[in-house]
Amino acid sequence: MRYAMAIDTKKCVGCSDCVVACQTENNIPIGYSRDWITETVEGTYPGLHLQIRSERCNHCEDTPCVRTCPTGASHVIEGGIVKVTPEECIGCGSCIEACPYDARYVHPEGWVDKCTFCDHRINNGQDPACVSVCPTTCMYFGDLDDPNSEVSRITAVRRIKVLAAEAGTKPQIFYLV
């Protein structure tokens, strides 16, 4: 099993619904967020190119955050989801430095927090909160090892890019461009 997400940059309008849904679903402390919207503008007027992306932890295959954790609090669970055990985390910030996507933050209680792909919802057969609320249905979630899953089918036919591929982490969030 290999969970992954595909996000259609042609359909995303940057409404931030996914951000709010995540904050509500996961009880994120005020002022923090596990996902966010990035807008990239390239070129010079009038030849501008705009891309809007919903970003979060990439649940990389080669996880620098887990490698650098001195206590083993950061770990990978079934399906390739990267999680943190609060009781083992000393809050040293090593994993935060190790992440090329700046996807982690220190929870006010002292441990490091991050996107979990809403594994509590996946286990009940639901989509992650961000995916389930998207008004343009630009996000697809599923198992890459299953050729019939939505995410496998769409990444097979569309042109995809991953973020900071040169960091060598093999990210598992695919942007359809």
């Binding site: 923090y32 967020s33 966010w36 503008v41 910030g93 430095e97 700046d102 933050y105």
Partner: peptide, 23 residues
């Protein structure tokens, strides 16, 4: 030219606007 902005207002302490987790 390339410009990148976080437009959903992410302001995680020590991460934004620049990483400063180790001071």
């Amino acid at each position: 030219m390339k410009e990148e902005l976080i437009i959903s207002g992410r302001m995680n302490p020590h991460i934004d606007p620049v990483m400063n987790i180790w001071h």
